[in-house]
Amino acid sequence: MPRTFTIDTSGSPRLHIAARVGAAVLGGYGFAWGINAVTMALLSAAGLEFHDAEFLGNLLGVLAFLVVFLWTFAARRLWRVWAVLTSGGALLAGTGSWVQSWLV
């Protein structure tokens, strides 16, 4: 059963597309950065060698960017995408720094 997507189209469609592309590119990057930071910090805390943690962080970060990029276009409500990507990204990155402060 295909779900029907009713996306709020208040305002001009051009603006809506710009907001969606912006969310995908900028929000996606911020979120990917957060995933990257938290993976690196947590794996380092778990005793992994720095460059191993860095590689796994990069890998997960890139794959997360891909997934949220696609999700941004598929999602029903754009405001929710913005909210998840920005607050999620900040929270993840913050956790990364917090874990680092315990380690160093």
């Binding site: 950065w33 890998l59 160093v104």
Partner: peptide
């Protein structure tokens, strides 16, 4: 496409070791 991204990731796209997680890098 994926490995191309990974080759440059830590230097250019996500330079965490040089910025946010510099402390961990230094320790290593």
């Amino acid at each position: 496409a994926l490995t191309g991204l990974l080759i440059f990731a830590s230097t250019y796209y996500f330079p965490l070791g040089e910025t946010q997680l510099h402390g961990l890098h230094e320790r290593h």
